[in-house]
């Protein structure tokens, strides 16, 4: 169980949002956008802190609230970012907002990637689609402290080349000689020169060593379901595999009930879990 810092509560009430202003909008794919934002309140803008892996509740006031992770890295704090796929009520309302529009923000909530546990180890990042959003916060965090970690592999896949999110990051990591970047798509096109195939299959082909390694997985549930067994085949123990989960949430703080996997609430006990923590329930609840 983790406890968020109460000093970031608006008016001392955990349910009240802070007002934030959209500073920039990046079109990632035809359905996915990244929003850069900052708090309206100057003091909060300076003092606000978070850790890679944490999430927040974002409001389009009058439409409602939705849950997204903070996709930027705490090592790069001139603004904050979140990325969304336009699929529901709030994400569609967000889509109608432009730069300068005000949104509500409350958080950060949830636990985070266990930085101390990851230090000194090899890291294998495995992402699919917009699931790269929480991973990129950690990836940049790790790259900005490169000497504290050993080998870094990044596996990232999307359905088609057009569906690849954060293309500017993929390029940067591909150029980075200290990182092994593997990008794959389910279906290529004429200009696609990278790998073709589902992420778990490519992962098994490249077969990163499990020795002194932690795998960090985030993607659509279907990818997660097939990636866990693939990692087990490669010798990764359940304790060596981390994931960050997404469920429908309303409160974000372990009260409203709906984001549980077994006895664990994704908001209160996660969103970062080891496979060991959730394996009893994950087969039928995720």
């Amino acid at each position: 169980m983790t406890v968020a810092d109460t000093k970031f509560f608006a008016q001392g009430n955990v349910y009240l949002p802070h007002i934030a202003v959209i500073e920039k909008i990046v079109e990632e794919t035809p359905g996915v956008r990244t929003y850069h934002f900052n708090f309206k309140d100057e003091k909060l803008r300076k003092e606000f802190t978070f850790q890679s892996g944490q999430f927040a509740q974002y409001s389009v006031l009058g439409t409602g609230e939705a849950t997204f992770c903070i996709s930027s890295s705490p090592t790069r704090r001139d603004h904050l970012e979140f990325a969304v796929q336009r699929v529901g009520k709030v994400t569609n309302a967000l889509n109608r907002l432009g730069v300068g529009a005000e949104i509500g923000f409350r958080g950060p909530y949830g636990n985070s990637f266990p930085i101390d546990f990851l230090k000194g180890k090899n890291l294998v990042f495995i992402g699919g689609g917009i699931g790269l959003a929480p991973l990129r916060s950690l990836i940049w965090n790790v790259i900005d402290n490169r000497d504290k970690y050993k080998k870094i592999d990044i596996f990232y896949g999307a359905r088609t080349p057009t569906d690849l999110c954060f293309k500017y990051d993929l390029e940067a990591w591909d150029k980075d000689k200290t990182v092994n970047m593997v990008t794959t798509v389910d279906r290529g096109d004429d200009s696609w020169k990278g790998k073709v195939g589902l992420v778990p299959k490519i992962l098994e082909e490249v077969a990163p060593s499990a020795k002194e390694t932690v795998a960090i997985v985030c993607g659509p549930p279907i990818m997660i379901r097939f990636t866990f067994p693939a990692l087990e085949k490669l010798g990764f123990k359940p304790e060596q595999t981390l994931t960050t989960l997404e469920k429908r949430m309303k409160c974000g703080i372990g009260k409203c009930g709906r984001c549980n996997i077994g006895n664990l609430y994704v908001c209160r006990d996660g969103p970062v879990f080891s496979y060991a923590q959730i394996k009893d329930f994950v087969s039928s609840e995720y």
Binding site: Y15, S59, G62, G64, C251, K255, C256, G257, R258
Partner: peptide
């Protein structure tokens, strides 16, 4: 268990 929703009448809203 509870749900959270917004209601907006003109420029005045309630959560």
């Amino acid at each position: 268990c509870f749900d959270i929703n917004d209601e907006l009448v003109k420029q005045e809203g309630t959560r």
